[in-house]
């Protein structure tokens, strides 16, 4: 947890990243940046999924539709925030010459997406069967 607070402080004092260690090969920084962008795209896709659930499944009951949409949107927000955090931590680790941080987040996100997908299948199948 203190690790998280530390990296949160780095968010708002970016010059402190530059104080530490030495500048890594620019290609490593660019690779880190591309990973960050891939996570941002994932976040945007989740947000787009939230819009799509709301827009293209209007026959669902209100609670189910809102629940699914909010789950996707929440995952998108988490993903975007975590993208910045992970990027900062990787950048810092590269400057200090440490190992890159490992994270449980990809597993959690995949499980969450799988649950939402299953819920969507169940809802769509039974929603259509009921009509």
């Amino acid at each position: 947890m203190s690790d998280f607070v530390q990296s949160l402080r780095l968010w708002f004092a970016p010059q402190r990243i530059r104080d530490e260690g030495e500048t890594p090969d620019y290609r490593f920084s660019l690779a880190n940046e591309r990973t960050f962008l891939a996570w941002i795209r994932t976040a945007l896709a989740l947000v787009g999924g939230g819009f799509a659930v709301d827009q293209f499944l209007p026959d669902l009951r209100w609670g189910v539709r809102v629940g699914l949409a909010l789950a996707l949107l929440g995952a998108g927000v988490l993903c975007a925030l975590r993208a910045v955090n992970h990027w900062v931590r990787c950048e810092r680790a590269m400057r200090r010459g440490e190992d890159l941080p490992v994270s449980r987040f990809p597993t959690v996100l995949s499980l969450a997406v799988a649950v939402v997908a299953l819920a969507m299948v169940v809802v769509v199948v039974f929603g259509w069967a009921g009509r």
Partner: peptide, 12 residues
């Protein structure tokens, strides 16, 4: 140069 933190924060 590496991406600035401001750019990353703005994109997020």
């Amino acid at each position: 140069a590496a991406l600035s933190l401001r750019g990353a924060l703005l994109a997020a």
